[in-house]
Design a binder for these strands. Structure first.
Lengths: 198, 198
DNA sequence: GTCTATATAACGATAGAC
DNA sequence: GTCTATCGTTATATAGAC
């Protein structure tokens, strides 16, 4: 019987880490429970001592990651910095998440689309709405306080920022030549000032 | 036996259109040959009169689309306009492709990653290199002629442009409130001038 | 906590009648 | 060009021994 996340989290989280790496590399559907068991050095049937199903594994991977991510978002939103500073922090926070949890971000990017069609993963849509609220609030505040230009469609800007930040997980490699801070620096420059010569 | 693309393209391309819509909506692996056959009003076995395999279907969908897209890219590159104008045209061309071939773009975005691991789809990597060449050439030319700022990493800018343009297929809806020209306008403004108040 | 063995279901694909 | 019928494979998941 699967343990509640309290006891023996060592083995449990190790198996989830292995599964997350495989889900990110090969995709959820192309990763079999045998693949996960092989990578863990056990047989496929033994996995069901720890988890109800393969679906439970990706569920726990995504919900755990999102809980952590949105707690960090909330902390930034709750701070009393100005809009541009908070926008800066949220962007940096996102690239930091890609750096520290690349598998989880990749899984979310690749699988959230169709997982969202199942009731069990309804929280993904809730989180998406929550994410939109974070960005749109900051963008509106920026326009109102005059630090951001007012002639752009806020919702369209939000989608561009969101997509461009998270899609970076496709090419960003932790420990590579570019740190997540380098990427955030360049991205914020492009986003705020543009690539045209002033 | 499957027909070479010469004769009776009516039925063949209709079946491919049906398959492309399903591949885009549900994902390639989540679309069964029975799904495709059902949508076409025939039985699954009958599909194999037209195509060797399910893989052949996505292969033909992707290769046909890319051939058309890159022919359009080449035409822009071959023109004698300045770098900024060509950059403008390539961006608009891409959003137009999303508008006119949303299923094909979505399939490429969602499936190219793992399909690329098979020999049969090696041309996807070739096209990716070709795409990079198009953008990087224009960006370099823009920096050299002084219309683009010189303090950014060209390769990083390329990836941001590429990703942000194509990922728009996730939310853009042909026939919706925003036309592909509206989206291109706003995107080019953000990309070139930034969202900060001047 | 892991292994052995297997149930059950769904999938891609095939052969031949019509 | 489509249908009938089904094969062979692979996947998730289960039951019980150890």
């Amino acid at each position: 019987m699967p343990e509640p996340a309290a006891t023996s989290t060592g083995r449990r989280s190790e198996l989830l880490r292995i599964a997350a790496t495989l889900f990110a590399e090969k995709g959820y559907t192309f990763t079999t429970v045998r693949d996960i068991a092989d990578a863990a050095g056990i047989l496929s049937g033994s996995l069901y001592h720890h988890f109800d199903s393969k679906e439970s594994m990706i569920d726990e991977i995504l919900s755990t990651f999102q809980e952590e991510l949105f707690a960090a978002y909330d902390a930034v939103l709750a701070s009393d910095a100005d809009a541009r500073t908070k926008l800066d922090r949220v962007v940096r926070l996102s690239f930091e998440a890609i750096d520290q949890h690349p598998a989880e971000v990749a899984i979310f990017q690749n699988e959230a689309g169709h997982l969202g069609t199942f009731e069990r993963f309804g929280y993904l849509a809730d989180r998406a709405a929550q994410s939109r609220h974070v960005w749109v609030t900051l963008l509106r505040e920026g326009v109102e306080t005059g630090v951001l230009r007012a002639d752009l469609d806020i919702d369209l800007v939000y989608r561009f920022i969101r997509d461009t930040v998270w899609v970076a997980v496709r090419w960003y490699r932790p420990g590579g030549a570019l740190s997540h801070r380098d990427v955030a620096d360049q991205y914020l420059t492009i986003l705020l000032e543009g690539i045209a010569h002033a």
